[in-house]
Design a protein around this nucleic acid. Structure first.
Lengths: 236, 236
DNA sequence: GATCGGCAAATTGTTGACAATTTGGCCAAG
DNA sequence: CTTGGCCAAATTGTCAACAATTTGCCGATC
């Protein structure tokens, strides 16, 4: 914790987890921290210390951790504790295969939706993309990773299909964990913005076939980048 | 577990939730009961009574209920309780749209897998189908519904893609809740076996295109059946 | 010197009690 | 007769203490 500014803990402690849905809040907060790399893969997450850190008891913490375990970003070893999941190249392939399936479906549902739905989605995506470009300029990689997934999540959210969204969000969190480790090996981050811009344009133009192809290529490229990076780190 | 009858308690107690992963056990047990219709849609599920019925405390019960809430078969109203989810026609369309996406992906992954993987999957599917035919003969609808989803789940499981499987299992549970209400309006249950046999044959023949088409049609037909049934019940 | 057995520390799993909140009914006022 | 607020019951949300289990270490023995 400490100074990382942006979100989450913010500050430390003056406020005591305001709000109503407590365990959910903790889960969201933790997910954000994990996904941003505040906890290293394989690291143990201790219930008791979290309880005191967040100024609550182990009950809500436990619920939150269990939730994140079910989402797959934590693993629960019986009577041992929960640990931040370590993702293998195989995991990456799995995640992106499912993402491709869901996002392709989202594309089709979106294109069959009323025009105003498409337009509103495009508008949201445009804003996200603009923000991403801004962060690319200052090379804030965690922010870029966040906006990358926000783009895709908003895309899927445009369908309004709550099951699609629910399934996708889980994968989005896992993807952010992957992307985070990609930082060093990405020579030109601006291609990221371009790639997403292509997706947005194709949606706006309602070019179904090209959009589906672009999604597939986007995913395949990501797997390529992530696995090579991953294997390289492993070999080193 | 005796068939239905009263409900949960059944049992009474000869066995006390043996085993190791307790909360998970409770969740599985509850999911099975809910999905079999032991709890009616909209009905409240009380933590305390479950705790005494299952001879445990509220802690594990709570975890199990939260898990099922996250899966979507229960809904959690803050400070009110958890209730069995009531599915609308819109929900049905959502569920089957995602199922189609995931199952199509599973088909493609399976067809790209080594032959022995396909063969083993076919073998499992064949057994399930045989069992289904048996239950059709005696018109045990809950069993048929269970085997229906077991067929599809095994199909997806054949890919070995754990994310795919995880996402699909959730939808499978929701689907069973839908199918259960379909009983009365299904004049010829044997077409169910035939339909699944077609899917199995196409997988065995590795006919990619036809298999994908069959999956799409299977899902579309299901939505058709389920929504008309649902709307009829609503109108009545 | 290596290995097996037991011991202690740490962590999760479980439990029962207490607090907070929502809901429905009841009573009174208009 | 209707409407408004108050009160009580029921249920979940939270908490702190206790129990069970796993792990790694240390010493004794072969």
């Amino acid at each position: 914790m400490s100074t990382d500014s942006t979100s989450a803990a913010t500050t430390g402690s003056p406020f005591v987890l305001e709000g109503r849905p407590t365990a959910q809040l903790i889960a969201d907060q933790l997910r954000e921290q994990i996904v941003q790399g505040a906890f290293l893969p394989g690291q143990q997450v201790n219930e008791s210390v979290l309880a005191v850190q967040l100024n609550t008891s182990r009950g809500p913490i436990r619920e939150a951790l269990q939730r994140l375990s079910q989402e797959g970003i934590l693993v629960n070893k019986r009577n041992r504790g929960v640990f931040v999941r370590e993702l293998t190249s195989e995991d990456i392939r799995e995640i992106y295969a499912v993402r491709q399936a869901l996002e392709s479906t989202a594309a089709q549902e979106l294109l069959d939706a009323p025009p105003e739905t498409i337009e509103e989605t495009c508008s949201i995506l445009k804003d996200t993309l603009a923000e991403m470009a801004k962060q690319v300029a200052v090379s804030d990689w965690p922010a870029i990773a966040r906006l990358d997934m926000q783009f895709h999540t908003s895309f899927v959210a445009g369908t309004g299909n709550s099951r699609l969204i629910r399934s996708y969000k889980t994968l989005a969190a896992e993807s952010r964990m992957c992307i985070l480790n990609l930082e060093v090996s990405y020579p030109r981050v601006d291609v990221l913005v371009e790639e997403h811009q292509v997706l947005l344009d194709l949606l706006a133009r309602r070019d179904r076939k090209a959009l589906l192809r672009a999604i597939r290529q986007h995913m395949e490229k990501a797997v390529e980048d992530l696995t090579t990076q991953h294997d390289k780190a492993l070999g080193a």
